[in-house]
């Protein structure tokens, strides 16, 4: 088994044949750690996330996730592969016509209905929701009736429903107030601690979150890795763009 959860080798991506969103990006995301990917807007963070999920394919280069090259997979292999990943979307992306509990049951029913009975599925979904901090009294509400923080919790419970090996967070704190931001950060750390051996990848432009929760931090610029390492690497760096990013990020406080 390779050391890296995700191994990205010299990938490029262009949508129109001219502008490269990702431009020779190489990155090894370590297993079992919280990796935070930061960068200014438009540096290719979200596109990189889509490549890891297999929603986009690189124009050139390889993406190897959990030891599998996404290019060589067939339809069934991609489905099986995606069950090993969990994603918390920016706005949780809950299905708005079904209840909270049904939202979490949904992926389990889709992939485990032949092996688990309905009781077991409901029991697992209830446990996942409780672990994410949702109380039982909210289970039969529709997502539209929940607050922003509660939606995130349900989104996380759904992402964790199939016990994924990699959990990806797409801008988890964008648009949230400072208290909620802290709550989500704590939730990410707590979830990571609970799911032993799992790898967490957080894509954000929130510098505070990056330094608070990130064990391995990657900064992107112009579709490439500008700097990677732990907090100290960043504070010691003399790259002007990194210094500017740190300056701007911490000035807000």
């Amino acid at each position: 088994m390779s050391e890296s959860a995700v191994s990205i080798r010299n990938i490029t991506k262009t949508f129109d044949g001219k502008d490269f969103v990702l431009n020779g990006l190489s990155l090894e995301i370590p297993r079992g750690e919280i990796t935070v990917i930061i960068g200014f807007s438009g540096t290719g963070k979200s596109v990189l996330l889509k490549h890891i999920l297999g929603l986009e394919h690189p124009t050139s280069g390889d993406v190897v996730v959990l030891g599998k090259d996404l290019k060589t997979m067939n339809y069934q292999e991609i489905i099986d592969f995606r069950c090993r990943l969990g994603v918390l979307f920016q706005n949780a992306a809950l299905f708005d016509d079904i209840t909270v509990l049904e939202n979490v049951c949904f992926p389990i029913i889709e992939h485990r209905r032949n092996i688990w009975k309905a009781d077991k599925i409901q029991e697992v979904a209830t446990r996942k929701l409780n672990e994410s901090g949702m109380e039982n009294r909210h289970f039969h509400k529709l997502p539209g009736e929940l607050s922003g923080g509660q939606r995130k919790r349900v989104g996380l419970a759904r992402a964790l429903a199939l016990d994924p090996e990699i959990i990806l967070y797409d801008e988890p704190t964008t648009g949230l107030d400072p208290i909620l931001t802290e709550m989500v950060d704590e939730l990410i750390v707590a979830t990571h601690a609970k799911n032993k051996g799992s790898t967490s990848i957080v894509v954000t432009h929130d510098l505070h979150a990056a330094f608070r929760i990130g064990q391995f931090i990657v900064m992107l610029d112009k579709g490439r890795v500008l700097l990677q390492g732990n907090r100290e690497t960043f504070f010691k760096s003399d790259i002007p763009l990194v210094q500017r990013f740190l300056e701007k990020g911490f000035k807000k406080e």
């Binding site: 929603l55 489905i79 992926p107």
Partner: peptide, 14 residues
């Protein structure tokens, strides 16, 4: 636009 279709995709549901 609310990423629910992407969510289906990443759950391994076509």
């Amino acid at each position: 636009v609310s990423e629910q279709i992407d969510a289906l995709d990443v759950m391994g549901i076509d």
